[in-house]
Design a binder for these strands. Structure first.
Lengths: 212, 212
DNA sequence: TAGATTGTTAATCGATTAACAATC
DNA sequence: TAGATTGTTAATCGATTAACAATC
């Protein structure tokens, strides 16, 4: 199987969400590419190509078996084989994420939370005992943690990233607005609100229209 | 001026962030497309095109004036003419956003927070007195609020969206994983963690590699 | 002047959409 | 069978990159 492009992965997520909801509500067995495409505003040809890329085949005049599609997507993302993650930075955002049940649905399991603020270390958040950042490296190495979620201030984020990567982390998911760098093979995923903010500001800004 | 494509807007944000930091640290006056491109891993031709799209011109053998570039980008996004926003849903995430100073940097100003939980109404979060969701419509209409930030449970988000759009909101920025719909002209911007989660899960998943 | 850099046109690349034969 | 739908190949579209004349 070819590696799937990011743009395909994003559509797979949409298919999965829509079809999961659909099966929860109705007992539909099969769906055509035209039906699914219409529901999600995606070209039917695109749907067929995406399914084909996962090795799925449909049936003429019937469509694709919904359960089979869902299962294939869950396999692609390994949703049923959760990876362990640590969360670093237990401020407001970090705390909100610790309470967030969405991770489990996507094959991730937060196993520990770290902070360097003595006032927070030892306290409990969403059932997690906050650990000292000093013990982070040993924890990552001992448990072979592949993923770290960073909800720490901008200034510290590159330094912490370097330490985590040195400890063996394979993915950094950062909520700081700084662009982080790491050696090849390590995936850095940024969740920048700033991009959304910019889109929104542009949409609300009458400037380009008024100068046409 | 042509409307700028989303992909261009995203690069403009990166230019702005990099050049702001640069001017804060050094007294550099001009920068070439090659220098900027190398720093941000963007093709120099792309940089020149983007600048050209904003009506900026550079000087041969010198480059572009940094201040001029920053100013042009700030004008495109109207960063210096803040728009008003309300935040709906003062749970953990909503509360984290209310404390977040990043909005002002991007031309947005949160002016009020709403919730429908009687236990929260009247309490103060980050200096905002939480208001009853019942008063939301009147508030939006009275103050001509163009933007609403939604940090409410999935189930309620479409209903609240409809009410806000009816009240005159022009942009909905939602943090719920549901896909929202609204009549044309209204911008719906989703901040789905689920997309990031899926990318990460895929990266960590050995499946596609092992079946090659 | 010589050489570096811009601004623009052409080529490439990848993703999306259209067309259509094969199939149920 | 007739007709709807798949799977795939070709065409289109848009974005990125390369090439290069104009310019400082």
């Amino acid at each position: 199987m070819e590696p799937l492009r990011p743009v395909v992965l994003e559509r797979l997520i949409r298919y999965h969400r829509y079809l999961s909801e659909l099966t929860a509500r109705s007992s539909l067995h099969a769906i055509t590419s035209a039906q699914l495409g219409a529901a999600l505003d995606i070209d039917p040809t695109q749907v067929r190509k995406d399914f084909g890329a996962m090795g799925l085949t449909g049936i003429s005049r019937v469509g694709y078996e919904v359960c089979e599609v869902c299962r294939a997507i869950r396999v692609v993302f390994a949703f049923d084989h959760p990876h362990s993650a640590i969360l670093v930075g237990t401020g407001r955002l970090g705390s909100a994420l610790l309470h967030c049940p969405v991770f489990a649905r996507f094959g991730l399991r937060i196993v520990a939370a770290f902070d360097n603020d003595p006032a927070r270390i030892g306290t409990e958040i969403a059932g997690f005992q906050v650990r000292s950042a000093r013990t982070m490296r040993a924890f990552v190495q001992k448990h072979h943690i592949p993923l770290a979620i960073l909800t720490i201030p901008e200034a510290a984020s590159q330094r912490v990233t370097d330490r985590l990567v040195a400890a063996g982390v394979k993915v950094i998911w950062s909520f700081a607005p700084t662009r982080l760098t790491a050696p090849g093979g390590v995936l850095i995923r940024h969740e920048h609100f700033s991009l959304s903010l910019a889109h929104i500001a542009y949409h609300l800004n009458p400037y380009p229209a008024s100068t046409t």
